[in-house]
Nucleic acid binder design. Structure first.
Length: 924
RNA sequence: GGGCUGAUAGCUCAGCGGGCUUCAGAGCACACGCUUGAUAAGCGUGAGGUCGGCGGUUCGAAUCCUCCUCGGCCCA
C-alpha cells in the first residue's frame, strides 16, 4: 500500500474574504458611514457633470410620523431607477421633497397644546405657525435618517420643503399667476360649518353622532302646460331649514316615476283626494303610508329621462320664493328612501352644489356664520336654522305645500371640538377656473394624450378625472400654509390684479417667509398709491395640493434644472393627487405638463392581499425589516415584485427574498473566490475562447439589452428576476458547475482556465454593476472585495459597455439545445444513482444518441455533463466509468496509475502538479 | 353606487393578437438522493395548479364576452 499524497493544496480552490453570510443589519450601517466619509454623493454628482440629464422629480412626502412601507416602496423604487440611470452614464440629481404644511400638522400641534393645557385660539397665529414649522422640521429630519438607512442616496442637504421661504414665495407667486391671468375667481361653495365656533371644519374634524331631525314631505307644483302640469313633485328632506335655499330638484334618469292619483285619505292626512303626485314608483307604498293616503292609483309611469325639462314652483311661491326649481338629472339619486326626487339647495350640500353649478344655478348665501338666515331671506330672516324646522313646516302647510311631517333618528355630523351639530353653508372660496379663456381642462387633456404612462392604464384614469372634475377650490380657512396673497377691492368685490403688488409680496415672502402676510401692515404690499382701507386682505391659505402641484416650479424650474421632468413616479392614488394638481398647475401657468412620463406603482398589502392596519396586526414596518434582515432585502423585494399592481409583503415573503438574496450573494462570493489573484495578463480575447465562454458573453449581452430596454421604457418589471435566474440557472447550476474542473485543476496558465477567468472577470463587473442599483450595500461589498480601495465605490462605476459582437443568437440557440440534451443526461444519471450504479456524476461515463454529436464532440459532452467520459451510440446510456479515480481532479480514467511519479493522478493533473512537486522538493 | 384595476402551483412571477414551441411554465420553499474542493454552501430528481366561480362565443379558451364572488386605489 502506498500513501496517496494529499493533492488538495495543488488545487486552485476559491479564496475570498467576502463572507458567505450577509450580516446586513450590522454591515449596512458601516457602509453608510463609509459613503459619508468618502463624500460619495458629491463625488457622484461631480463625476456626472456635463453628461445628458435624466430628471426624476420627487413628489413631496408629508412630514408627519415615521416612514411606512409605502414610503419605502416609493423611494426605493425611485432610488433604483435613478441609480440605474446614473450607471448608464446619465447626469441624475436627486432632490428629495417634503410637504410640510397642512391640517394634520396643525392637529398634532393642537394636540400638544391640549396636553399642556393651552388654548389654541388664544395663541397668536405667528406663534402657532412657528410651532407647526418646528414640528415639520423634526419629522423631516427623522424621515431623512430613515430614508438614508434604506440606502436611498441623494442631495439630502439640498432637499426641498414647501415651508422653505423660497418655496413659500414661489407658491405665492404661482397663485398670483392665476390671479393675473384671470383664472382665479372668488365664488360661493358649501363647506362644513360649525355655527358654534363660527368656523369651517375639515372632514377630519367631524364626528358622527345620532340626532333626531324633523323631516317633511313637500309638494313642488309642476309648472307649464304638459301632461304633468298641476301635479306635484314630492320631495323628502331631513334638513327642513334648507328648504328656503331650494333652487332645483334632482331625479335619477334610470329610475321609474309614478304619477299617483290620490283617491282617498286617512283622517288627519295632509294629502287631498284628487290630487296627483309624482314619486318614484318603487317608493309609492312608503310615501302613501307616510302621507296617510288610503287609496290611490298609478295614472302613468314615466321613465326618469322623460322628466327632463320639467320646471316646478317653490312651495312658497308668492311669498318671496318666486324662482323656478327645474328638474335635473343626477346619478346619485336612489330609491332607498324619500321619494326619488331630491330637494336641491346648492348652498347646503356638496352634491347639490356641483349639480347646480353644472346647470348655471346661482348659490344663495342664505345663512350667516352664526347659523341664522340672512336679512334678505323672506319669512325667516334672523331665525336660527336649528330652530327653523317648525316655522318652515308651518309656512309650507299654510301655503298648501306640506304633504307630511315626521322625525328621524340618524347619524349626523358634529364638530369634533364643540360636539355641536354642524351644517353645510355656502361661504366665499377661491377657485381656479377649468373652462375659462385659459382652457386649462382642454389643454390638460391634450397634454395627457402626449405624456407616456407606465402602465398605460394611468392615462385613462388621469384623463377621466380631469375631464370630470369641477373648478379647483384652492382656499382653506386655516393657519399653517401659504396665504392666498390677494387683496379684494371693497367697492367692486374684485381681486386686485397688480404685478407690482405681487412682486412686493413675493419679495417679502422670500426674505421672511409667508409669515410676512400676517406680520406686515397691508400698506407694505399695496404701496403708497393705494388706500389700505379700500381693500380687504384675504386671510385664507391655499390648499396644500396647490402647494405640491407647484413643486415643479421651485424644486425644478427655479433650480435651473431641465423642465419638464423626464419622470414622475408615485403611487396610483396620485392620479387624483399630485399628478393631477401638478398637471393643472403647470398647464395653467406654463401651458404644458411638468412631466414627460408618469410611472405609477400599486399599494402594499399584507400576505393575504389585505390592507395593512394596526388593528389587524398585519403591518410590516420598514424599520423592522432593516433591523432584522437588512435594507438590501427590502430593496430586493421591491424589484422582484410587479410594482404596476398592488404588492404584498409579510414574514413569508420576506423570508423568500432573503433566500433569493443568499443565492445572489453566493454567486458573487464564488466569483470572487475563483478570481483570486486574477492578473490582467491572464486575459484572453473573445475570439480565442471556447464556445462555452462565448455563450456566457452572449447571455451577458442579452441581459444588457434587457437593462437598457428598462432604462428607456421605465418598466423594470422582470429585469431583476431575470438576472436572478441567470445567476441561478445559467451560472451556478451550469456554467460554474461545468467550469469548476478547469478552474480548480487545470494548470494556472491553461488557455481554458484563462478564458474562464476572463469571463469571470466580466461577470463580476457586470453583476456588481447591474446589482448595484438594487443591492446597493452588497454590490459595494462585492466590488471592494475585488478592488480594495480607501475611497473607491461601485457606485462611481458605470454599467460595463458590452461589445456588439458578444451577442450571437445562433450560439444562444445552439446552447439551448445542448442544455436540453444535458437535461436528459442528468435525468439518466439520477436514475443510475438511484440504482446505486454511481454516486457522483464523475463516476460515470455516458453514451449519447448519435444526433448529439452534431452539438459537441465526446470530450465536450463529458465536460458539459460533468462525467468522466462520453461517446455516441444508439441511445442514451449511463455506465460505471472504468479505471481509477484521479486523486486530484476526481475524474475516473483508465490512464490513472500510469503517470510516472504520480501513480494516483491522470495525465492532466500529473502535468499540472509536476513542476509544483519539484518546487516542493527544491524547497525541502 | 361610479371610474380604474386585479384574481395562474405554498410564495413571487411568465404565459393572455385562442389551437402549433406551454391547458400549463420558471425561480424560491418542500421531499428524496448525490457531493463534502462555493460546505450554516453546491448539484440532481421529484411531488405541487379543475389557470377565483357559473355560463356563453368557437371545431377548440388560462387566453374573447356576460354575470357573480373576493381584493385594491380614487370618488360618491
Amino acid at each position: 500500500m502506498t500513501d496517496t499524497p494529499d493533492y488538495r493544496s495543488t488545487v486552485f480552490l476559491p479564496a475570498t474574504p467576502f463572507p458567505m453570510r450577509g450580516d446586513l443589519p450590522k454591515r449596512e450601517p458601516d457602509l453608510l458611514a463609509r459613503w459619508n466619509r468618502i463624500g460619495l454623493w458629491d463625488r457622484t454628482r461631480a463625476a456626472m457633470a456635463g453628461r445628458p440629464a435624466f430628471v426624476l422629480h420627487d413628489g413631496p412626502i408629508y412630514s408627519n410620523g415615521h416612514l411606512h412601507i409605502g414610503h419605502a416602496l416609493n423611494r426605493i423604487l425611485k432610488d433604483v431607477v435613478m441609480r440605474a440611470h446614473r450607471m448608464a452614464g446619465e447626469n441624475v440629481d436627486y432632490i428629495p421633497g417634503w410637504d410640510t404644511h397642512g391640517l394634520p400638522i396643525e392637529w398634532k400641534v393642537e394636540e400638544e397644546y391640549r396636553k399642556s393645557g393651552r388654548d389654541k385660539d388664544a395663541v397668536p397665529v405667528l406663534d402657532f405657525r412657528d410651532e407647526c414649522r418646528r414640528y415639520s422640521a423634526h419629522w423631516l429630519a427623522v424621515q431623512t435618517e430613515e430614508f438614508q438607512r434604506l440606502g436611498v442616496i441623494g442631495g439630502w442637504a439640498g432637499r426641498y420643503a414647501t415651508m422653505d421661504f423660497g418655496s413659500e414665495a414661489a407658491i405665492a407667486g404661482e397663485i398670483c399667476k392665476f390671479l393675473l391671468n384671470g383664472a382665479l375667481y372668488r365664488g360661493l361653495r358649501p363647506v362644513m360649518w360649525s355655527p358654534v365656533e363660527k368656523t369651517a371644519l375639515a372632514e377630519a374634524e367631524i364626528e358622527y353622532h345620532d340626532r333626531t331631525s324633523d323631516t317633511v314631505f313637500a309638494r313642488f307644483p309642476v309648472l307649464g302646460t304638459g301632461p304633468l302640469a298641476g301635479a306635484s313633485a314630492v320631495i323628502w328632506t331631513t334638513t327642513v331649514w334648507t328648504l328656503p335655499g331650494n333652487r332645483a330638484l334632482a331625479y335619477g334618469p334610470e329610475i321609474d316615476y309614478a304619477l299617483v292619483h290620490v283617491d282617498s285619505v286617512a283622517e288627519g292626512s295632509l294629502a287631498r283626494p284628487g290630487e296627483r303626485l309624482l314619486i318614484a314608483l318603487a317608493l309609492v307604498p312608503q310615501v302613501c303610508a307616510a302621507a296617510g293616503i288610503a287609496t290611490h292609483h298609478v295614472a302613468h309611469v314615466y321613465k326618469g329621462t322623460e322628466l327632463a325639462g320639467l320646471v316646478c314652483a317653490h312651495p312658497l311661491r308668492g311669498q318671496g320664493y318666486d324662482h323656478d326649481a327645474p328638474l335635473l338629472a343626477a346619478d346619485y339619486v336612489t330609491t332607498d328612501q324619500g321619494t326619488g326626487l331630491v330637494h336641491t339647495a346648492p348652498a347646503h350640500g356638496e352634491e347639490d352644489f356641483l349639480l347646480s353649478r353644472a346647470h348655471g344655478i346661482e348659490v344663495p348665501e342664505a345663512v350667516g356664520p352664526d347659523g341664522t338666515y340672512a336679512d334678505w331671506v323672506p319669512l325667516f330672516a334672523g331665525l336660527h336654522v336649528f330652530k327653523a324646522a317648525a316655522p318652515v313646516a308651518a309656512a309650507l302647510e299654510a301655503a298648501g305645500g306640506l304633504l307630511a311631517r315626521g322625525t328621524l333618528l340618524h347619524s349626523y355630523p358634529h364638530s369634533w371640538r364643540s360636539k355641536a351639530p354642524v351644517i353645510y353653508r355656502a361661504t366665499p372660496q377661491w377657485f381656479i377656473r377649468m373652462d375659462g379663456p385659459e382652457a386649462i381642462r382642454a389643454k390638460a387633456l391634450e397634454e395627457i394624450a402626449r405624456v407616456a404612462f407606465v402602465p398605460e392604464a394611468g392615462r385613462t384614469r388621469l384623463a377621466s378625472m380631469v375631464a370630470g372634475r369641477p373648478d379647483w377650490c384652492i382656499s382653506r380657512q386655516r393657519a399653517w400654509g401659504v396665504p392666498i396673497p390677494v387683496f379684494v377691492e371693497r367697492r367692486t368685490g374684485e381681486p386686485l390684479r397688480d404685478p407690482a403688488v405681487v412682486s412686493r409680496i413675493t419679495d417679502a415672502f422670500e426674505q421672511e417667509g409667508a409669515d410676512a402676510w400676517y406680520s406686515s401692515p397691508p400698506s407694505r404690499f399695496l404701496g403708497n398709491n393705494r388706500d389700505p382701507d379700500a381693500y380687504e386682505q384675504v386671510m385664507d391659505i391655499v390648499d396644500v395640493w396647490f402647494e405640491s402641484g407647484s413643486t415643479h416650479a421651485f424644486a425644478l424650474e427655479a433650480r435651473g434644472g431641465p423642465w419638464p421632468a423626464d419622470l414622475y413616479l408615485e403611487g396610483s392614488d396620485q392620479h387624483r393627487g399630485w399628478f393631477q394638481t401638478s398637471l393643472l398647475e403647470a398647464v395653467g401657468t406654463r401651458g404644458r405638463a411638468p412631466f414627460k412620463a408618469v410611472l405609477t406603482h400599486g399599494f402594499v398589502l399584507d400576505e393575504n392581499g389585505r390592507k395593512m392596519s394596526k388593528s389587524l396586526g398585519n403591518v410590516t414596518a420598514p424599520q423592522e425589516v432593516t433591523d432584522k434582515l437588512g435594507a438590501d432585502i427590502l430593496r430586493l423585494w421591491v424589484v422582484n415584485s410587479d410594482v404596476s399592481e398592488d404588492l404584498r409583503i409579510g414574514p413569508e415573503i420576506l423570508k423568500q427574498q432573503a433566500e433569493l438574496y443568499r443565492r445572489l450573494r453566493n454567486t458573487l462570493r464564488w466569483l470572487l473566490g475563483s478570481l483570486d489573484g486574477f492578473k490582467e495578463n491572464e486575459r484572453v480575447p473573445e475570439a480565442a475562447m471556447p464556445e462555452l465562454e462565448r455563450w456566457v458573453l452572449h447571455r451577458l449581452a442579452e441581459l444588457d439589452r434587457r437593462v437598457r430596454g428598462a432604462l428607456a421604457s421605465h418598466d423594470w418589471t422582470g429585469v431583476y428576476p431575470e438576472i436572478h435566474a441567470f445567476c441561478s440557472s445559467d451560472l451556478s447550476a451550469f456554467y460554474f458547475d461545468v467550469r469548476k474542473d478547469a478552474l480548480y485543476c487545470d494548470p494556472a496558465d491553461s488557455p481554458r482556465r484563462r478564458a474562464a477567468r476572463t469571463v469571470l472577470d466580466h461577470l463580476h463587473r457586470c453583476l456588481t454593476a447591474w446589482l448595484a442599483p438594487v443591492l446597493c450595500f452588497t454590490a459595494e461589498e462585492a466590488w471592494l472585495a475585488r478592488f480594495p480601495s480607501e475611497d473607491g465605490s461601485v457606485h462611481l462605476q458605470q454599467f460595463p459597455p458590452i461589445p456588439a459582437g458578444w451577442h450571437d443568437a445562433a450560439l444562444g440557440a445552439r446552447w439551448a439545445k445542448i442544455r436540453e440534451a444535458r437535461g436528459a443526461v442528468t435525468a439518466a444519471l439520477e436514475a443510475a444513482r438511484l440504482e446505486k450504479l454511481i454516486g457522483a456524476s464523475l463516476q460515470a461515463t455516458v453514451t449519447l444518441p448519435q444526433a448529439d454529436a452534431k452539438l459537441l464532440d465526446a470530450d465536450g459532452w463529458a465536460e458539459v455533463a460533468i462525467v468522466s467520459g462520453a461517446g455516441f451510440g444508439d441511445a442514451l446510456a449511463v455506465h460505471r466509468a472504468p479505471g481509477g479515480k484521479c486523486a486530484r481532479c476526481w475524474r475516473v480514467l483508465t490512464e490513472v496509475g500510469q503517470q510516472p511519479g504520480h501513480p494516483a493522478l491522470c495525465v492532466r493533473c500529473a502535468g499540472a502538479v509536476g513542476p509544483l512537486a519539484c518546487d516542493q522538493a527544491a524547497a525541502e
